[in-house]
């Protein structure tokens, strides 16, 4: 009586279900974990390979012979390795974040906050400048022709060469601390916002502009009711790029000699004293900070666009 195809169908369906056993989140995270695992393995191998010569030198100088196993073990626990092993960086990061009072100069939280505050100030400044310039460019043909080439040129100037000059010039005028770094950060972050917003403000289709014209709407009204709301997807995309660029700008601003505060200064002093673990810890602190900031903007983006009915 029964169709023989039915049980086969059920088997196939349950097999498909087993394939989906990890769930959506699980399937999304598996490739990430696989890549992470591969990186960690490669990193350990590189650490052994790069740190081993020093171990052999030390042994030779002491007139000892070392086995391969001893070499490997020694490469994992040097105080100033050429390449610190992942667990050393993790320990350094953990100690920097939780092992110190957050007011201590050895605390990554303290340095991170210095960098974060300048980054946020520069990001706010740069984004505001980018949005204002984009609004000007969209409304004025003269600005469209005159600003854009300069904006592009500003980004071709090597920031590493400009940053020390900005710091030194401003310091000679008595301006130190957050502002000079924020300016360098703004310099890098205004550009993606400018480009994104010019595109976004021009995004509505011609019919929408015709409608506005049929209502005799002024330029300001078109901007407020049509251009700005429609540009939000472009704005958020460019803000994500801008905040990462702002962090890079701040760190570059912290590198010039004399800086003692911030993740950039931490990187620099680490390289002075050959404190590779300190360098890598600061590097990872900066990377984690950048990821957190980009994620935060992404979260705001998701909520805003969903509320505005602009989410895909």
């Amino acid at each position: 009586m029964h169709d023989p195809a039915v049980p086969t169908g059920i088997v196939a369906a349950s097999a498909a279900r087993r394939g989906r056993g990890l769930g959506k989140a699980g399937r999304a995270i598996m490739p990430v974990l696989a890549v992470l695992g591969a990186i960690v393995v490669a990193w350990y191998l590189a650490a052994v390979w790069m740190n081993a010569p020093w171990v052999r030198d030390q042994a030779a100088r002491a007139g000892e012979t070392v086995t391969a196993g001893q070499v490997v073990r020694a490469t994992m626990a040097q105080e100033r390795p050429v390449l610190p092993a992942p667990h050393q960086v993790a320990a350094g990061l953990w100690d920097g974040v939780t092992g110190q009072k957050i007011t201590s100069k050895r605390s990554l939280v303290w340095h991170g906050w210095i960098t974060l505050s300048a980054t946020l100030a520069g990001f706010a400044l740069g984004s505001a400048a980018g949005i204002l310039l984009a609004v000007g460019i969209v409304h004025s043909r003269v600005m469209d022709l005159s600003i854009m080439p300069w904006a592009v040129a500003s980004q071709t100037v090597p920031i590493l060469a400009i940053a020390p000059m900005v710091i030194v010039v401003l310091a000679s005028m008595g301006v130190t601390g957050l502002l000079p770094k924020a300016l360098i950060s703004a310099w890098l972050s205004f550009f993606p916002v400018l480009v994104g917003m010019v595109k976004g403000l021009r995004a509505p289709d011609p019919m929408q502009f015709d409608l506005m014209r049929s209502w005799n709407a002024g330029g300001g009204q078109v901007l407020r009711h049509l251009r700005l709301p429609s540009s939000l997807p472009w704005l958020f995309a460019s803000l994500k790029v801008a905040i990462a660029a702002a962090l890079v700008g701040t760190i570059v601003g912290e590198l010039p000699a004399g800086a003692t505060q911030g993740l950039g200064a931490r990187l620099l002093s680490g390289s002075y004293y050959g404190q590779t673990i300190q360098i890598w810890s600061a590097l990872f602190a900066a990377a984690i900070l950048a990821a957190a900031l980009v994620w935060l903007i992404g979260a705001i983006e998701r909520v805003t666009l969903r509320r505005m009915g602009l989410a895909r």
Binding site: Q208, D210, L211, P229, R307, G309, L310
Partner: peptide, 9 residues
């Protein structure tokens, strides 16, 4: 117009 062109927000 041919399309309603309503604002989604």
């Amino acid at each position: 117009f041919q399309a309603p062109g309503l604002y989604p927000w």
